[in-house]
Each structure stands twice: as C-alpha cells, then as structure tokens.
Amino acid sequence: MGDRRFLVGMVHFRWKGASVRLFRRNPSQEMPSPDLVLPPEGVPIRLKVAGVGVRMAAQLTDILITFIAAICLLIVLGFLRLTSPDTLFAIGALLFFLLRVPYYILAELLWNGQTLGKRLMKIKVVAHDGGSLTTHAVVLRNLMKEAEIFLPGTLVLMLDSASPVSSFMALAWVAMALAIPLLSRWRQRLGDLLAGTHVIHLPQPILMPDLARADPVLHRADAPGFIFLAHQLDHYGAFELQTLEGLLRAPSTAMTGANYVNHRATVGAIIEKIRRKIHYADPVPVADQDAFLRAFYSAQRAHLEQRQLFGERRADKHHARHVDAAD
C-alpha cells in the first residue's frame, strides 16, 4: 500500500497551477482496508488477508498428504498385481488426481473452508461478500486449482527442450497463476475471483486482564493516591494511551537480568517525560513507578473515553493542532 501511495504521489504533479493526476483516483483515499469483512449482521470484522507465502505452505502440505496417500494406494495395487511397469506412471497419476480432487472439495466443505494444510497454517477460506461459504464456491475454487496449479505444475515438470513453444506457454501460465494473487488486494487467485472467496488468517481470541481495574498488588492500602487534574489529561490521545497499554502489558515479572534493567530504565524515562509534559510536580519514587503508570493509564483512559462519548475522538497528541487547523 505504501509504495502505491508513493507512486500516486509521483505522478500527481502540478502544471501551471492546475493539479494533474494520471490515475483515475487516489486509492489511499477511497478504498477500505482489504482486511474488513462485512457479515450480514452489519458490524464489520477485521480478518487479516493471508499472504501468498503462508498459502503456498498450506498448499505444499496438502500436496504432500495426497501424494503420500496416492503412493500408498499404488503400493497396495502393486501387491494385488493390478499394475504393470509400463502403466505404473499413468495409474499413479490417475490415483493422485482421483484422491486430490475430492480431498480438497470435501475437506473445505466439512471443515468450513479448511483443508489439513490450512488447519496447520491457521488460515481459512471465507466468502468475499461476508455471507456464508457456498458449496458452489468451494467446488469452483478447487476445480480451478486443477487448471491453475496442477496442470501448469505438471507441464513444468515435463518440460523438454524439444518443444520450446509449449515450454514457453507453460512458463507463461505459471507466471500468470502466480502474478494474479500478487496483483489482487485480497491475494485472490483466479479460482478465488471466480468463486467470490478469499483466504484469511484465523484470529485467536485472547482476553487479557483489564488494566483500568484496581490491581490488588499495586494498590496496597498504604500506597499513595495519584490524583490527575482534567487539564493534565488533555495532552495525550488514543495512540499514546494504547502505546502505554502495550508497555504495561509487557511481562516485566518474567524478565531477567539486563532485560529487566533496561525495562526499568525505559519506565523511568517515560515517567519523567509524562511528568514534564503534564506538569506533574511531585516526584515518583522508584517503588511506586508501576502504580503511577497504572493510575495515569486509568485516569487518562477514563478521560479520553468520556471525551469520546461526547463526540470528540482524540486520535493522538496532535489532536489540538487538528482542531486549530480546522478553524
């Protein structure tokens, strides 16, 4: 995305005061993030689009699984004396084909868009429009896989110098099959485009404790109460708040040696910065540093959330400048 914006910036030049734009529109302004999926319930959900690398890994796993199954079956047929050396290759190819076509379709139907390889890589097929994955979509995207991956794959494996034209065609086909997902914002291959699907990373729901709630360890009975006034909380926005949240969630108790020393130094420096910025006069003793940050986090979050309820979202510490610019 970033380099694309850069490109647009390059061709967006001025000529005699008139702005000339070569592209029809600036993609950075209008297009929503490709990670957003809109379910029928109407609340958009962020589902990160899976990249080409992780999908290739899943694909290789699946190919390996079906290939090994085909080899096993071939050995069984060999013991039953149903094969002869000159038809071995053709029967093997047939078995591989007859195993993998139903495997992909059935696995994605039964496991709701996941094959074994995809389960391993924790990725999943979803419907592009946010509805449920239809049978038609699953069948179509997996049949196109034959034409998109396996056919050019076998062609490349069977390349020979005697037929340069067909070799060139096979290579062009492979290049096209790889280029289409790279050009698509949702990393859709041709089968995905036809079926109206794309592949996402499965998110892991992990609920962390709420930092704004009183911590029995930090809030001892004799701990000093840190009081912040409204004007002291007007400096920061959501970005700084969530950065502080990240720092507070760092597992400081699990740190050892130099890491811990560094962490303490960072915390100390941050507290000094905050104190200077918000004009907090009282010094913070080392023993109370964590309690101070927690108290500041809670107070800042309560303040910002209240502002947000009243319709003023403060994205970051530059919010005041934005308001001035608007005036």
Partner: peptide
Amino acid sequence: LDRALLDYLEA
C-alpha cells in the same frame, strides 16, 4: 479505548 479488549472482541 482498551486495545486488548477490542482485539479480543474482534477475534
């Protein structure tokens, strides 16, 4: 504005 909560609910 609790990022952890938003991420959890999202997932």
